[in-house]
Design a protein around this nucleic acid. Structure first.
Lengths: 233, 233
DNA sequence: CGAGCCACTGAACGCCCGTTCAGCCCTCGA
DNA sequence: TCGAGGGCTGAACGGGCGTTCAGTGGCTCG
């Protein structure tokens, strides 16, 4: 449970064992605890303990508990962006395993992000929009090489896929119960059944499109909204 | 939609039409508030106000706040089961629109359920397992009439589909931002773009299966990952 | 008519939360 | 050498929380 790392150089004086500035330690501890127990389940005292400082110091640096929360949002958003651009810079087009690996490596960020998406807020909305744009770009590449099929509406599909992934992550506790391995905490090789089911979902249709449409058309209860679908030209 | 039955003044002669017992009113208020604001965001005082009773009465009936929580879980699980069996008894095989309608009609239950799934707990785990079994039965019917394609592992697919749906519901705030309509609060006709994207996801493959497998097989080495981009073999 | 029970309440209690305050220690510039 | 100032702390405070207590009033029953 200790967030003491010993590598960073800052403040050369050998006064303390950990040379990481307190404000950074606080941020780190807060993000970890918030991600683990939710925003309403963590007190300043716990954060202070985890960071090895006193409670008032948190207020000294961040003004209030709400201020700390905002700082966490910002920090996570920045760190996320940084990690992403770094990985993009060094990676081949879109290695999916690498993505999982990266996600697990930054699981404290991921866990925080999930909570934050649930809670909402301008910082996270903006981040989500950026994620959508990124996805669109990746998916365009995938479509270009024939890995992904075209969609009637690319953006909507990207949003759906993103939301579906995030939702699955949010419910990772149930995933763990059902598949016997955690998406966030287990090594990928334990997740094979889960991944297999996902791949099937994304590579094979689930419903028979014609029959589905047929059933829908034959049983449209709302009186006025029973438009026929001449959408496909 | 307030849960304030009866008059502001209790004790006065029958201001209320229906004479709902206080313990039920408390349960109802608690479920509504928990669903709306989360388990950590609601106080006994708020619940008592909403139910039109005093705070200690809640303790009198449910022992403690935790006891109330358990009672809520149980009540929701039962009500859910009841609604489901009722709808099954009277419905044709599986009208999807009717399902959405039913969900919106019981949105306070749904909102509570989502929170509860996130929080976990034995009651909800059990309920989830039951949902999986139900889904399996429905999907077997759908498969029998050719609406659904067979799966390599039916149970895993059912779990994935359930989790995906719940996850989407959990993130309905983001869905609303992206599609302009709330899954839970908007009438179905406002959700057409969202539903269209969902239908596409479930009726058309997203990835090219062969190419995907091919890419996976060619880039599986876990340690020797510094591959150049010589994609064509 | 009392006794006992049950639903129900106002007041009070103890705890812990976020926050404030006064002051300590260390560094640094004059 | 001294004063200023920032990082940091222990102690204390007000408030809101869940919970407890000591009832009160209306029923039912002997």
């Amino acid at each position: 449970m200790d967030y003491r790392y010993g590598g960073s150089r800052r403040g050369v004086t050998a006064v303390t064992a950990e040379d990481v500035p307190a404000s950074e330690r606080i941020l780190h501890a807060a993000i970890g605890l918030y991600g683990e127990h939710g925003f309403d389940g963590v007190t300043l005292k716990q954060i202070a303990e985890q960071a090895g400082v006193s409670t008032p110091l948190i207020l000294h640096h961040f003004g209030s508990k709400a201020g700390l929360r905002v700082a966490c949002d910002r920090h996570v958003a920045e760190e996320f962006q940084r990690t992403k651009t770094e990985s993009v810079r060094q990676a081949t087009p879109i290695p999916r395993n690498r993505f999982v690996e990266l996600m697990q490596q930054n699981r404290h960020l991921v866990k925080y992000l999930l909570r934050a998406f649930l809670a909402g807020g301008p910082e996270m909305d903006e981040l989500f929009d950026r994620l959508v744009e990124d996805s669109l770009r990746y998916m365009a590449e995938a479509e270009a090489i024939g890995l992904m099929y075209p969609s009637r509406n690319r953006r909507d599909r990207a949003v759906i896929l993103l939301l579906s992934s995030f939702g699955m992550l949010l419910l990772h506790e149930q995933v763990r119960r059902q598949f016997g391995a955690s998406i966030i905490d287990d090594p990928p090789e334990n997740l094979l059944p889960y991944v297999a089911a996902l791949i099937e979902l994304y590579t094979q249709p689930v419903f028979n499109a014609e029959l589905y449409e047929q059933l829908m058309n034959q049983a449209t209860p709302p009186s006025t909204s029973a438009e026929e679908r001449g959408t496909h030209d």
